[in-house]
Simulated assay, not measured.
Amino acid sequence: MKSLWALIAGTLACHAAIAGNAPALGHELASLAGTWTLQAADVIHADGRKESDYGAAPKGLLMIDAQGRYSLQIFRTDRQHFASSDRAKGTPEEYAAAVLGTSTHIGTVSIDPTDHTLTFRIDAASFPNQDGTVQKRAYELTGDMLSYKVAPRPNGDVPVSVWRRLPVQ
């Protein structure tokens, strides 16, 4: 019986140690967990005009797990296929369109509901200059709709993404 209690105590201690190493999840971060589908990927120009940043009907998916790990992808749906059907034999124009028509990154995300910011810690991105960066974004979360503004680009344009949570099946 003593060894059973020792095993239970050891197991609880291990779980506590593991939990101590896991990021603390508040209710706010837990409210982001799930799969989100892109509703809009717009850009607000310095003069206030708003237009689509990834074509008329962009597609995207944002997945956030309970520990705050995420994967995000945004694609232009009007990207042209490579003429050669071989990704290693594209033209400079095809490569440029493929790169400029996608935005992907993975890492961890945290939330600060007090100042309404999401913080993305980007481990890897389709744009290599974002690898290892930390990006804060102003957000709004209303029900199953999440929107956030990305930091302004060098030309002053501000990208805005709008996501809708998919229902759990």
Results as ranks from 00 to 15, higher is better:
A138I: 09
V134E: 05
F82P: 08
A124K: 14
R79L: 12
D47Q: 07
R69F: 14
S84E: 02
G143T: 05
I64Y: 02
D144C: 03
R76L: 10
D47I: 07
Q130I: 06
A66W: 01
T102K: 06
A124M: 10
I74R: 03
A57S: 11
P154D: 08
E93F: 10
E51T: 15
R121Y: 09
S110A: 11
S110H: 04
A83P: 00
Y70I: 00
G48Q: 11
G101H: 03
P113V: 13
D86S: 09
E94M: 03
S110D: 13
A125P: 00
H81W: 09
P128R: 02
T117P: 02
D112T: 10
Y95V: 13
F127A: 14
E93I: 08
A124Y: 14
T114R: 14
T114D: 15
S110V: 09
D53A: 15
D53R: 11
A124C: 04
D157A: 13
S85E: 12
L72G: 03
S147T: 05
L146D: 03
D157L: 09
S71K: 06
G107I: 12
K89I: 06
K50W: 09
G90D: 09
R153L: 12
L61G: 00
K89H: 14
V150N: 15
T119A: 08
S103L: 11
V150I: 10
G143K: 03
S103M: 08
A124P: 03
